[in-house]
Design a protein around this nucleic acid. Structure first.
Lengths: 220, 220
DNA sequence: CGCGCATCTGGACACTGCCAACATGCGCGA
DNA sequence: TCGCGCATGTTGGCAGTGTCCAGATGCGCG
């Protein structure tokens, strides 16, 4: 440390040359954490490595997140937000198209997000991190909106079904879309197999498999 | 340690009163590991705790599994074996019934296993542990058999579809069943919602939701 | 100006996975 | 039958981790 004048000028700007207070450390931590998650999955994420990448001490994160689990829960909620953005974009893009096409577009968006964000998708579906049954789940309102979209969709697909049948159809479709996403993420099926399967399921015409109009979500 | 005669007689039988060689340590380690997995999920499993429960030194497991990942992979393969057992039992039980009923029974068995074994189901579906793309995946032959069952089933359900359609229907059904299981495991839907959804999906009559004829798999 | 408190720091502890070196005793060949 | 090799077990050690504690820093408000 102390070597005569001030402090050693290490390569570039080191922590010692920065203001003591960071400014927006929480965001920087989340960005660094997403970097790690995308690189190697959330199970190997280390709070200390996050702090290192944000160029702060190993204890700084504790002033923004009580513990590792809280950080991961936050990342999960952010990821769910990213998924929801894609779903709503697909919904808007097909607002004036027939229901089957809308259903296909939304399903493709769901699975596309999972395929583009393996690690985040697994993170937000890990019940040890984001358990919807937990009372303080910050994901609850987001899940609510996903459910809402699904309900609306199924109502459009089959307007004259009685309530019980609609509920059953809703969870069936949800399960199928979610399951296909999971199979892609775990590498059990190839992404190319998704569109035909969706076709078989919804009967309608699935949109082109690639979905370039919605870029992968940024960290923010 | 040394307190006069022999060695301290600690409560019950301690490691020091046991034969130096264990006999079947591998099995004991797997049993202890499954215990931990079932209690708190595989992410928090610690090799040292496994060794402690098997009453051996913290390094003994390394002579049976190269590292933590290998132990978990082994547990994953064992779990997959348990699932396969249930599926084949359901298949045998409905061998002479109509295809839709057989499909319902097998789907219910799949989801029932997941519901009864949350932690093991998650373990064997974690791509960081059991990646089917990995060449040395010991689960490959098991997955093969699951695929075989699925193929046979879909062929029975729709005998005169052309190959492409059958493949699509196969992954669609697989995805739906897998997705419903995942939704139950992550707590996003209740187990009771499964049967109606399967009904909506397969059209047929699903078997009773509970499935008492196949007890939960033992550790072995 | 000065005080409080959110923020950030280094140090410490218990725990972990894994490596290296040594101990034990079963099984097999001479 | 002996004794030697090697799988199986042991203790010890290292680096890395999550979390707690006590102190340093500096922004904002009286």
């Amino acid at each position: 440390m102390r070597d005569g004048h001030r402090t050693a000028r290490i390569l570039l700007v080191s922590r010692s040359e920065r203001a003591y207070h960071h400014g927006d450390l929480a965001a920087a931590l989340e960005a660094a954490a997403f970097e790690l998650v995308d690189e190697a999955g959330h199970s190997s994420l280390s709070l200390r490595e996050v702090a290192r990448r944000a160029d702060v001490s190993h204890n700084a994160p504790y002033h923004h997140y009580g513990d590792r689990a809280s950080l991961l829960a936050r990342l999960g909620a952010l990821s769910m937000g990213g998924l929801l953005d894609r779903l709503e974009a697909a919904q808007r893009r097909t607002a004036d198209r027939p229901p089957t096409e809308r259903a296909s577009a939304i399903a493709a968006a769901y699975i596309g997000f999972a395929a583009d964000n393996h690690a985040r998708f697994r993170l937000m579906n890990d019940p040890e991190i984001c358990d919807p049954r937990h009372p303080s789940a910050s994901m609850a309102p987001l899940l609510e909106r996903v459910h809402g979209m699904l309900a609306e969709l199924v109502d459009d697909l089959d307007p004259q079904a009685e309530p019980a049948g609609r509920a059953a159809l809703r969870t069936a479709i949800w399960g199928a879309v979610h399951g296909l996403a999971e199979l892609v993420v775990t590498g059990q099926i190839d992404r190319a197999e998704v569109a035909p399967a969706l076709d078989a399921l919804l009967g309608g015409h699935a949109p082109r498999p690639a979905d370039p109009s919605t870029p992968p979500p940024s960290t923010a």
